[in-house]
Amino acid sequence: MIHGLLGDSFSSLRMIWDELTVHREKVSWDRLVWHLGHVPKFSVIAWMAVLDRLPTKARLLSFGLHIDGMCEFCSNELESRDHLFFTCCFTKAVRAGVLRLCNLSRGALDWSEEFFWAYRQLKGRSLSSTLLRLV
Rank of each mutant, 00 (worst) to 15 (best):
F10W: 15
V98K: 05
L61G: 08
R120P: 02
L61N: 04
A46L: 13
R59N: 03
Q121K: 13
E25G: 08
S128M: 08
L134K: 11
S105K: 13
L51T: 01
A93Q: 15
R14G: 12
E19M: 11
S75M: 04
A118K: 10
Q121N: 11
M15I: 10
L51W: 09
W47N: 06
R106T: 11
S12L: 09
R31Y: 11
V94I: 08
L51Y: 06
V39I: 14
P55M: 03
W47D: 06
A46C: 15
F90I: 07
T130A: 10
Q121L: 10
W117C: 05
H3I: 03
F42A: 06
Q121D: 14
T21I: 09
L101E: 12
Q121E: 12
D18P: 07
L127W: 15
N76E: 15
H38C: 14
L5F: 10
L61R: 08
D30T: 07
L6K: 12
D68I: 02
C74I: 02
H3T: 07
E19F: 14
Y119F: 08
G124P: 15
P40S: 06
E19L: 11
S75W: 03
R59P: 04
L109H: 13
L6N: 07
R81Y: 01
R125I: 08
G124S: 12
G107S: 09
T130H: 10
